[in-house]
């Protein structure tokens, strides 16, 4: 790749607008990519508003996801309801520490970490921050890559509920937290997708100027 050596220039500073889907560049002002059809925006000014909107509904959905039961388990005449955290604690007390850790990481650590990370990224494009652009971009990469994996608990509930239908011997049904948790994951994925990471790099990390 032949580029500008150590001084990397951005398409924006060269008066060009880049397509984020197919990497083609066009003259500034063009509305949509003539190669792949994606809408073009040198910097997506509406993106931060969308990020905050999706993030807010994502966080709101995460609250009932932790308060209501995720699973309703019935073994013989014993019926129990578990929230996400109760389910993980129960697994841990039965000795399945590794599985309990996977559930806690996927359903608690990742979503909460993601709320904080997306919020931080959105705040940090608007004002100078301690973290360098490279580190912030890495954070964005991690959020984008790892966020989808929170869905694992929803699939676990789906598999358990489909599989464990053994008459009165044992049955598992999904609880209302399954839907609110899934919605929380979907909304925060939209928040991450809405974020325009090119803004991290503008003006040496101080954020883009409008104009």
């Amino acid at each position: 790749m032949e580029g500008a050596g150590r001084d990397i220039v951005s398409a924006r500073s060269e008066g060009l607008v880049a397509c984020r889907r197919c990497t083609r560049v066009w003259p500034m002002g063009q509305r949509s990519c003539a190669r792949c059809g994606a809408p073009l925006a040198s910097r997506d000014w509406g993106s931060l508003q969308r990020v905050w909107a999706w993030l807010t509904v994502g966080i709101i959905c995460y609250i009932p996801a932790n308060l209501f039961p995720m699973l309703r388990t019935q073994v013989l005449f014993d019926e129990s309801e578990d929230t996400i955290i109760q389910g993980a604690v129960e697994l841990a007390t039965h000795g399945n520490l590794a599985i309990a850790a996977i559930i806690l990481i996927a359903s608690v650590a990742i979503p909460v970490g993601k709320f904080i990370a997306i919020g931080y990224l959105a705040i940090s494009v608007a004002r100078p921050e301690r973290l360098r652009p490279k580190q912030r971009h890495k954070l964005y990469h991690i959020v984008e890559f790892i966020g989808r994996w929170s869905m694992i608990d929803v699939f676990v509930v789906a598999i358990l509920s489909a599989l464990v239908q053994l008459n009165f011997a044992a049955s598992i049904r999904p609880g209302p937290a399954a839907i609110t948790f899934a919605l929380s994951v979907i909304f925060t994925m939209f928040a991450a997708i809405s974020f325009d990471p090119r803004m991290i790099w503008d003006n040496g990390g101080r954020g883009p100027h409008k104009s």
Binding site: M1, A4, G5, V9, E14, A18, H141
Partner: peptide
Amino acid sequence: MTEATDLADLPLDELIACPQCDALYR
């Protein structure tokens, strides 16, 4: 080490912009 101004002189279809950070390359 192509000068930055050289990139702007190239035809647009010879350029590529990083979709993640907007860095422009030939």
